[in-house]
Amino acid sequence: MNQAAAKPTMNKRRKISRQTRQIVSTAGALLVLAIVFTIANPNFISSMNILNILKQATPIIIIAIGQTFVLITSGIDLSIGSVIACSGIVAAICMRAGWPVWLSMIAGLLFGAGVGVLNGVLIVYGKLPAFIATMGTMTTIRGLALFLTQGIPIGSLPKSFTQIGTQRNWLFNVPNQVWIMFILAVIFGFVLAKTKVGRYTYAMGSNYEATRLSGVNVNQTLIIVYTISAFLAAWAGMIMTANVISAAPTAGDGYELDAVASSVIGGASTLGGEGIVPGTVLGALVIATLRNGLNLSGASPFIQKMIIGIVIIGAVFIDRFRRND
């Protein structure tokens, strides 16, 4: 019985602005960081460095978009970091076996998607909590990565593969990987905002039971969501492997938490129902900018960790505070 708000108010404006507001406030934070860091070191604002930030943020942005889908359903995907490593390894093994680069990448991406399907099936049909299911696959897939490589990173990859990460494009001199990230963000931003799957994702996070009773195939949607997350993690795996020209079984360790942090800074809620792709992209950029800017200002690496932790807490705290009032 919420009598207060039932009466005429400016709600149309408020509804639209809740998402725009999230974007504006995160972008605002980004701008403030940019100004502060430019004062500390004028090189910060150089186009070269901005490209660096975009490049450094790319893997995190890609996985954070997937994590946003999962968080909206009020789940969590802890297996991302392991999928990054193992999909890169699968692709690398295929390349070393003489497969063409494109086919090897498809193999790596399919492997990632497969892990996502497995996560979804464990959650939906195995009735495991998302935390437990993905924690299990996290360890299993990391183990698989180590087993496949016997612990030794796979190097000497074809040049055409490594170019997907590093080669700078004719357009604005932007590295290919940033374009890949951009395209993935547009595609999955559209999926979340404008498609049936996206709508069902929000609905499940808002009220799972009501969604099921509305005739939505919740099982299928949940599997799709986890598949998207792992598929995007596999993309990050391709890019990271290409960046360092080495598929390491240790790659991506702990990245799942960066993904959660980015989503949350960008307005997603770990309680489900909320989150948008543009917010997440900005959230990941905030973290990447913070790291880059602190590096450029020559801050102690130990203090950097503290600052980033405080920013994550602060961002979410401010958001809660604003929402409750």
Partner: peptide, 26 residues
């Protein structure tokens, strides 16, 4: 010596840190 960064053995992180150092100190 202009600075030090700890990458936890993560190659991607080491790459990012090295880029930042090159930017910080042209």
């Amino acid at each position: 010596i202009v600075g030090v960064q700890y990458c936890d053995g993560d190659k991607q992180k080491a790459l990012n840190y090295a880029e930042d150092f090159m930017m910080q100190t042209p």
